[in-house]
Each structure stands twice: as C-alpha cells, then as structure tokens.
Design a protein around this nucleic acid. Structure first.
Length: 710
DNA sequence: GATCCTCGAGTTCG
DNA sequence: CTCGAGGATC
C-alpha cells in the first residue's frame, strides 16, 4: 500500500493543472483531518460526525491512490501498512528517561516535600498532580513538526525503536498543528482504555484465543509487535505528560507546557491539576483512590511534580530519580507471582474444586497464598499451568482471583492441567456429569465430604452450633466420637472421652455441649437447610418448611407434589426424593428425632409486619447500624433481604459510599431509602434497631446497659 | 427454545 | 463476590 507501480500511474494520464489541483486538495484534506483529530482526541469535542470524518478520509485516500507521488509519510492515511520488521532498531535517548521515587502515604509525601523545600530554599512552590496511567513509557521525537522517532523506555538510556507501531496509534499526531520547535521530544504513556480492553478480550474469547491478563500486558504486547499491522488493530491510546527536551523556546512551567503541547495537537494526561500547598496536594492524591475504579484507564498512583522548571533544575536528579517529582502509589490491587501447584479440594456436595497454591504475594493490603480456580474449564480457558507466573487480583473485594498467566514467562514443556481421575481424599473414580462444569466425587462416605457436611450442619444459618469449627470436627471424626451430624447429640454421653482429648478442658467441652443442646430448638427451615441436600439452600429450605410444616411430610412427599410448589422444579424435587430415600439419610433423621430435635414448624412463622412481602437491599456504610443489623431489622419488619437489585426490589437502603447497586436501582427506578427512614419505621413499630443479644428475661437493667459501639 | 431472574455453592485473610 | 444452573415465563 506504500507505493503504486509505475504502470498504474501512467494509466491515468494527468495534466499539469490537474496535478496541481489534486495536490492542493490533498493538502487541504490532510489539514482538515488533522484539525478534526485535534478536536476529537485532544479537546474531546468533535465538530463533525464520525461519518463526515470518514468521508474526508476516504476522499484523501482515493486521491493518494491516483497520485501516489504526493503521498507524504505523515499523511493521516499512513497510520497502517508498514511492512513487518526482522527486529527492532535501537534509539538512544538524548536525555535519559528517569524513573520516579515512590511515596506510599501522606507522610512519605511530606518527607519528600521537606527535602525539596530545603534544597529550593522555599516552601511555597506550586505542585502539579496527574494520574499515573499504568501503561508503557514512550518518548516521541518531532522534527519540523513531523513525528520522526518513537522509542520505548528500555533501560532509560537506550530503548527500542517502535516508530512504525506508534504511527498506527490514532491519537498520536503524525504532523503537529501550529508552530513548534524545530526539534523536540515529548514523553508519555501508551495504554489501552479499560473498556476497549474488555471488548478485545471478549472477541478473543469468542475466537478461542488466549486472553490478555490486563490492559498493561496487552498494550506492551501490541507495542512490541514486529508487524505494525497487528499493532494497528489493537486499541492503543496515548497520553503525554512531559516535555523531554526542546531545541527552541518552550514555556517555563509544567502546567504551561502541557497547555502548549495540547495546542500542538498532543493528547495530554487528563485530569491534571495545580496546587499551591503540600497539604492540599495530599488531599488531592487521596481523593483519587475512590475514583480509581470508575476511570477509563488503569492507574497505579498519582504523579506529583514541581511546577516551575527553574526549581526543577535547582533540585536536580539523584541517581536515576528526579528530586522534583514523586509517585504517590496506590496499594496495588494486582500483582504477579509464581503459581507453584494446583491443588484440589472436595466440597460438601462432592464437587472437586481446584485452587492455586501461590508464592505468597502482597496485593490489596493482604498476603495472598491461595486462590480458587473454580473448575477445569475455567483453568483451560485461561490456560493456567503449574509453574506459570500469574497475575493475581483483589479488585476492591476480598477474594483473590487468578486473572491469567503471563505466557512469555512460562517455563518450557509445561503440560495443560487436568482434573485428577480419582478423588484426592478417598480415591473413588471421579464423575463429571454430561454438560456440567463441575466434577464430583460420588462416594457418600468420602471423609472429605463428611467433614464438609458437618461444617455445613453447624453453620450459623443452619444449626448454629458455636465452638465447633473445622479443627474440632476433624478431631471428633478422627476419634470416632461421631460418624454423622446426628451423632453430635449423643456427645453428652461421651463427655469423659472428650475430656481425654488433648487440648479439651472442661470449659471448652461444656461450652460445646451447651451450644449443641441449644441447637435443638432451631426452626424447621434451618434444620432442613442443615441436612445439606443438593440444591436446597436457605431459601428453598424455607419454602419446604412453610409448605409442609413437618419433616415427615417432606420425607413422604412425592415427586409431582414437590415439583408443583412455586419455586421448586423437577431437579430440586428429584434431589429431595432421592435424599430421603437414602438409608443412611433416613437413619440421620431417626437419630435426630430420638435426640429431640424439633422437626416441625411452630407458630406458623409466616412473614408478617409492615414490610411483609417486600424485598430490600442495603448498600454502603450506614451510620447507626451495621449492615447486618440493618438487614436483621428489615427482616423483623417482615421484609426479605439480599440479592441483586432487580425490578422486584421494593427499595434500596443507601448509606455512605454506595456501590454499583445504587446506579442500577436508579436505572430501574427503584425507591431509594436512607437510614433515617428505616430507623423511623423501627421507632414507629417500637422495635429496637440493634438489640445487642436476646435480652435475658426482659431485665430492665439489661436494656439500659449501653450498647457496644460499632 | 430462549431469556430473565433467583438461588446455591464455594471462597481468602486476619 | 462470582459463576453456574434451576425455575418461571413467554
């Protein structure tokens, strides 16, 4: 596409006049396209539609095809098409690209400032802040207003020549508008906007191609392509943040320099700001943290620079870091680490759940050693292998996830991971039902499953037995004091045996036995949930309890009868029938009955109250109540709580710093309540907003005791 | 049969 | 919180 053959030119003979007209029209078009690119990419304020822009671009392209002798390398049409190279050339940076010192909190920023102030002999100098976009540093050299060279950072002094690739970036100006120094260099960041990154990965997933771990890796891969045609189809963007050097006059401050560069057509880092004092600057840096996720690009901190170049020169450089700038770094929400091995856990349902064993790494304020990998397909989709260096994320939430491997760092000859053929706990052959994502151990006496079942049984939402954790359950099973959940109610008789176990003193044993006794009064729904029947969670358990009122009625219900209930279909019906048909399970029910567990619903338990039938969700941090207290209060008023916002939601209760739920509720026109409204409702119905515990027989003193601060 | 909603199950660290 | 899958509905 670069040069047309001579025969093609001679095929369309043109007169001198026509030549001249075409040439000036081409210049005019280039000028117009540059003008509109400037409005689009720099000012973010386009004057014409994309379609109109396309028309201009097409006309220029056609003229250039008929008059290839007038094609200039900086023409807007020349963003694609350079042939692949064998290897990258080297660029020598005239001024080295420096790295930045880091500050991890306000105090470190103050230390930096104190030092700068003492060297500058003044404290009142202005500072400029700008987001530190997580991309790749690039240095662009312009000669006579035309992009001449683009180099990566490399080691700071010499980098790789990626000029043909940078020429394909839509927002990188090939020719500048207005006057500019004869020769100068600007520095910036090449990155991929988050939204475009998601689109790109979605498309790659559809084509079955491996996914990029994050925008930064994708941008690095795109920029270091030997074939610029590949780079051209990747959605790279550019943000300039600094003038490297200039032969000619330039402004005397960072702030003015950025405005000056924008005039020339450079897209500069968005949302930069200027501050007079240090404390104001620290506030500005911290204000970025909550905004972080809603920005169109990944950022890993805020860069703080001394505005005046004269002071910058005075402060100078120490080692490879300037003393006139510093990076205020956010706690990393992402990190790379070595995945040493993939292990497999057995769940309560027998599901085999692979998890990653990681070289411990600090991410999002915690040290991560483990991360779930969900299932075999997920591992295959991300192509995660043992020995891989992987990207680990804890985005906002708590649960770490393995985002994906860094393929360039994969050691040779690593096999794709496969689910073991036998259960890691009991060695029973593994079954993966047709069409399901999970593989299962189908041995009902699998020790791992029994352990998990018991953990579920004592769960707060189930039988709520305090003092019975993972370790204790394991001890009881190991010493054959129990074989199933119902045996817990016979432990009273084994008090002596319990006390003989290492680490079990009277206090601990009696507390355990007491909470086992207390669990006998749990509502029927909790008992049904505790049984751990597949597909029976807390909701379905409540439906069954409500509908049948007694466990025996459920045990004898027929398939059709169950499936006719609202919210229960054939799969759940089958699951219930099968469970109660099991000999071992029937024995458990018998033992529970004999132990005196209440197996029927008392007092109806029907939901009533001012909010009966309503469905509520709490988001954000409330003032007077914890989220749990608020949810409990809603339930006491007769409402149900939880789930995602949908059109069935009655109202959303919003506190400080609400999440995405608020936005969704607004979209769906769901009523928004504040905490005061909930509190008012509680007062109206004379309910304690936050009962500290069930009060001991209504003691007035107990009620007057100050509640614990939350 | 497709689509939307809801529920179930597993989950990490301190 | 997230994914997968069951249930309801058209």
């Amino acid at each position: 596409m670069t040069a047309k053959s001579a025969s093609e030119i001679t095929r369309s003979p043109t007169t001198e006049k026509e030549h001249f007209d075409a040439r000036s029209r081409m210049e005019e078009l280039r000028e117009q396209i540059r003008y509109h690119n400037y409005h689009y990419y720099v000012l973010d304020d386009p004057e014409i539609t994309d379609a109109e822009w396309d028309t201009l671009f097409q006309e220029l392209k056609e003229l250039e095809e008929t008059h290839p002798e007038f094609v200039t390398p900086e023409s807007p049409t020349q963003r694609v098409g350079a042939p692949p190279q064998e290897a990258f050339g080297i660029v020598e940076h005239r001024e080295p690209l420096l790295s930045l010192g880091n500050a991890f909190d306000g105090d470190e920023l103050r230390n930096w400032h104190r030092r700068a102030a003492s060297l500058a002999d003044r404290t009142d100098f202005a500072l400029v802040t700008e987001p530190k976009i997580d991309g790749l540093a690039i240095a662009l050299v312009y000669e006579n207003g035309v992009l001449a060279q683009a180099g990566t950072r490399g080691d700071g002094r010499r980098g790789e020549d990626v000029t043909p690739n940078v020429r394909t970036i839509a927002s990188a100006p090939l020719r500048l508008r207005g006057p500019s120094p004869a020769q100068f260099e600007v520095r910036g960041e090449v990155y991929i906007p988050k939204a475009r990154f998601e689109e790109m990965n979605t498309e790659r997933a559809q084509r079955g191609e491996p996914l990029f771990a994050n925008p930064r890796n994708a941008a690095a891969g795109a920029l270091r392509q030997l074939d610029p045609n590949v780079t051209a189809v990747r959605p790279l963007a550019l943000a300039i943040y600094q003038l490297g050097w200039a032969a000619g006059t330039a402004p005397s401050t960072q702030w003015e320099t950025m405005a000056w560069l924008r005039e020339m057509g450079f897209p500069t880092t968005p949302d930069a700001d200027r501050h007079l004092g240090l404390e104001e600057t620290i506030v500005a840096c911290e204000a970025w943290i909550p905004r972080r996720d809603s920005l169109p690009f990944d950022m890993d901190g805020v860069v703080v620079k001394v505005n005046e170049f004269a002071i910058q020169r005075q402060l100078g450089i120490i080692g490879r870091e300037p003393r006139w700038a510093i990076a205020f770094k956010f706690p990393p929400s992402e990190a790379t680490t070595l995945l040493t091995r993939i292990g497999v856990n057995v769940g309560r349902t027998g599901s085999l759940n692979p998890y990653a064993i990681l070289e411990p790494v600090h991410v999002g304020g915690a040290t991560v050693k483990l991360a779930t990998l969900h299932n075999e397909d997920d591992i295959r989709r991300k192509d995660i292998r043992e020995g891989d260096t992987v990207v680990v994320r804890r985005a906002g939430e708590v649960i770490p996830q393995v985002v994906g491997p860094i393929l360039s760092r994969r050691p040779p000859r690593r096999r794709r991971w496969r689910m073991p053929k036998r259960c890691p706990a009991c060695h029973t052959p593994v079954v993966r039902p047709e069409g399901e994502a999970m593989a299962y151990c189908v041995n009902p006496t699998c020790p791992a499953q029994v352990q998990r079942q018991l953990e579920h049984f004592v769960n707060r939402a189930a039988m709520d037995i305090d003092g019975l954790g993972e370790e204790t359950i394991a001890d009881l099973l190991e010493n054959e004091l129990i074989t199933d959940a119902a045996d817990l109610y016979r432990l009273r008789k084994s008090r002596k045996a319990l006390l003989s176990l290492r680490g079990y003193k009277e206090k601990k044993v009696d507390k355990l036995l007491a909470s086992i006794e207390a669990s006998k009064e749990r509502p029927l729904a909790a008992v049904i949930f505790a049984l751990g029947i597949r597909h029976i969670g807390s909701e379905v358990a409540a439906i069954l309890a409500q509908h049948f009122g007694h466990i025996d009625a459920i045990a004898t219900a027929r398939r059709e009868e169950l499936a006719a209930i609202d919210g229960i279909g054939p799969v759940i019906a089958d699951s219930v029938v099968t469970w109660f048909a099991g000999k071992r399970n029937r024995a458990v029910i018998r033992k529970l009955r004999r132990a005196g567990i209440r197996l029927e619903e008392i007092g109806g338990g029907a939901r009533e109250g001012p909010l009966a039938g309503g469905q509520f969700i709490v988001t954000g941090r409330l003032e007077a109540l914890t989220r749990n207290q608020a949810e409990a209060a809603l339930k006491r008023l007769g409402g149900s709580v939880g789930g995602g916002v949908s059109k069935k939601t009655t109202a959303l209760i919003v506190g400080e710093a609400p999440g995405s739920k608020l936005q969704r509720a607004q979209e769906l026109d769901i009523p928004i309540w504040d905490e005061a409204r909930l509190l008012a409702l509680l007062r109206e119905h004379r309910l304690d907003p936050a009962p500290s515990r069930p009060l001991a027989s209504g003691s007035i003193l107990a009620a007057l005791r100050p509640r614990r601060r939350i």
